[in-house]
Amino acid sequence: QIFVKTLTGKTITLEVEPSDTIENVKAKIQDKEGIPPDQQRLIFAGKQLEDGRTLSDYNIQKESTLHLVL
């Protein structure tokens, strides 16, 4: 699982696999929060994550925290 922290300070927990794409993660966030993926920007280690890449591409491991910017 990974954590996604929103600007409001809320933390969302997501069940993911390293092979999941960023697009996939955004879809999971939409399921939980109702935020359309095209409004979501995910930041990890100061980098904006691209939809077509996977979590493992960015070396995002379990218990990692991503930041969600709208």
Rank of each mutant, 00 (worst) to 15 (best):
S56A: 14
F3R: 06
I12Y: 06
K28H: 05
K26W: 03
S19C: 12
K10N: 08
K62S: 15
I2L: 08
L66E: 01
L70P: 09
D31Y: 11
K62G: 14
L42V: 03
S19M: 11
L14M: 04
R41E: 08
D20H: 06
E33G: 05
V25T: 03
T54P: 05
T21F: 08
D38A: 12
Q48L: 13
T6H: 06
Q30H: 13
L70K: 07
S56D: 09
S56C: 07
K32H: 09
R41H: 11
D31N: 10
T11K: 08
K28E: 03
L14H: 00
L49T: 03
T8E: 11
A27I: 14
T6Q: 07
T8K: 11
D38Q: 11
H67Y: 14
T21G: 03
D57V: 04
E50K: 08
R41P: 01
L55P: 01
D38Y: 11
T54M: 11
A45G: 12
I60S: 01
D31A: 14
I60P: 01
I12L: 11
D31H: 12
L14R: 00
T21P: 04
K47T: 13
I43K: 06
I22R: 00
K28L: 11
L49D: 00
A27R: 15
P18N: 07
Y58R: 01
I22G: 02
E33L: 14
E17W: 10
K28T: 03
I35W: 12
R41A: 08
I60E: 01
T6I: 12
T11D: 04
N59L: 07
R41K: 10
I43R: 06
I12A: 02
F44G: 02
N24R: 14
G52I: 08
D20T: 09
L49F: 02
L7D: 12
V69W: 10
S19F: 12
K47E: 12
D20P: 01
T8G: 11
D51S: 08
K47C: 12
E50I: 08
E15M: 13
I35L: 06
I43S: 10
D38N: 11
G46R: 04
Q40Y: 14
G34I: 02
E17N: 11
I22H: 01
V16P: 01
I43H: 11
L68F: 03
T8D: 14
D51H: 06
D57K: 03
I22K: 00
I60F: 03
Q1C: 15
K26M: 06
S64M: 11
G46V: 02
I2E: 01
L68H: 01
D57R: 02
L66R: 01
A27S: 12
E15H: 12
I2D: 00
P37S: 13
